[in-house]
């Protein structure tokens, strides 16, 4: 089954235009490393020194990983990962 990872537009150039890619279950930081093997350049764009960049939000099944275990959040079979650039709030 694997893990489905949604790729935002700015990174789709690296995935050959693919909006969704598959990964093996594991910690977020491992998934990023695995993606980078297949699509070189992804890791340095969304992370720096093993930390997710300040302006990148990552969600596992709709929950922000900052509320889970950040880079060490475990993602299991069948879960979905979204990589979303930080955007301005439109609430106010």
């Amino acid at each position: 089954m694997g893990v489905k990872v949604r790729i935002p537009t700015p990174l789709q150039r690296l995935t050959g235009g693919k909006e969704e890619v598959e990964a093996q279950p594991g910690r977020i930081i491992d998934i990023i490393a695995a993606l980078d093997k297949e699509y070189p350049g992804i890791a340095e764009r969304i992370s720096e020194g093993g930390k997710v960049r300040r302006f990148v939000n990552i969600y596992v099944n709709e929950e922000d990983i900052r509320f889970l275990s950040a880079e060490n959040t475990a993602v299991s079979d069948g879960q979905e990962v979204s990589i979303v650039p930080a955007i301005a709030g439109g609430r106010i």
């Binding site: 969600y59 979303v84 955007i87 709030g89």
Partner: peptide, 16 residues
């Protein structure tokens, strides 16, 4: 969903 869900969904719709 809540506001954060809406925002996240919108950034995905904006891709499409």
């Amino acid at each position: 969903g809540n506001y954060d869900d809406v925002n996240r969904l919108c950034s995905e719709i904006a891709n499409k």
